[in-house]
Design a protein around this nucleic acid. Sequence first.
DNA 1: AACAACGCCAACCGCAAAGAA
DNA 2: ATTCTTTGCGGTTGGCGTTGT
Length: 334
Amino acid sequence: MGRSPISDDSGLKKGPWTPDEDEKLVNYVQKHGHSSWRALPKLAGLNRCGKSCRLRWTNYLRPDIKRGRFSPDEEQTILNLHSVLGNKWSTIANQLPGRTDNEIKNFWNTHLKKKLIQMGFDPMTHRPRTDIFSGLSQLMSLSSNLRGFVDLQQQFPIDQEHTILKLQTEMAKLQLFQYLLQPSSMSNNVNPNDFDTLSLLNSIASFKETSNNTTSNNLDLGFLGSYLQDFHSLPSLKTLNSNMEPSSVFPQNLDDNHFKFSTQRENLPVSPIWLSDPSSTTPAHVNDDLIFNQYGIEDVNSNITSSSGQESGASASAAWPDHLLDDSIFSDIP
DNA sequence: AACAACGCCAACCGCAAAGAA
DNA sequence: ATTCTTTGCGGTTGGCGTTGT
């Protein structure tokens, strides 16, 4: 690991440190301290520049360095601080005793950053990535256009309809997931994007109600599974969403293969969103406890019969029109 | 078994800030 | 006030180890 042992123009050694060099440096610093890094190498008998000695000491040889894997708590602290401070590694390191800025920086670049990206978050802003979800208004417009197109095609049904429904469904899935993850969605301030998302979902839900076509546009929940697996390994994300209002999401189990949840913010009622996973080998709702626990809304979850398949959750069921509970809507898109 | 691709992380580089002369 | 030196910081590199083909 590290660099090959080379020397610079001044003849000073560069690259990986040998155990012998480490010993010399440690012995010297323990006896004399490091008042002058520039003078230290010569005094310690090292053919290194002062900067190299300082780096080796602060990042590796210091006795208070904690080595090994980052704990979940440390990971969470890094995420929290990074969301506020950005790449201020030294400041972040000050809050993690025994960890160096270099170590935290490496951990961020090799693990946390990738995880956030994988989750659809911008690693710099800790917000859902705008490159993926940008132009939601345009998507809405597109959706509306597609909807109009579908309405038109209903009179003259063609195969394209399913394609369009699929497209709408995929869009809704992404946006719904974004909505659930979005920290701002847990505050009282309504983010314009929320309206967009909810409107789109409403659009789909109302389409279900008005459409004479028996084809369902249920949302395949299988996609959540992979995200959830990531959540398990990234418990720190809990804090990103810990402010979610318990009343924001109303989940409701229907049977072993389906569950649904609706959303409501203040006085803004939202049509139910249907979620099903009839094709997945793993019933999507198996993880519903985890889903909602991850978002810190255990209060809501406690109202749910998580695996019995029975309906539960009084606050949720009250919002559901009876005609939408018809099992026929759970047929999947061909 | 051999090779390629990828992940990891120690160490380097260059710039900026702080301190000393 | 200016210049020089030292230290701190964040970005990047490159080589080893691991995993995949």
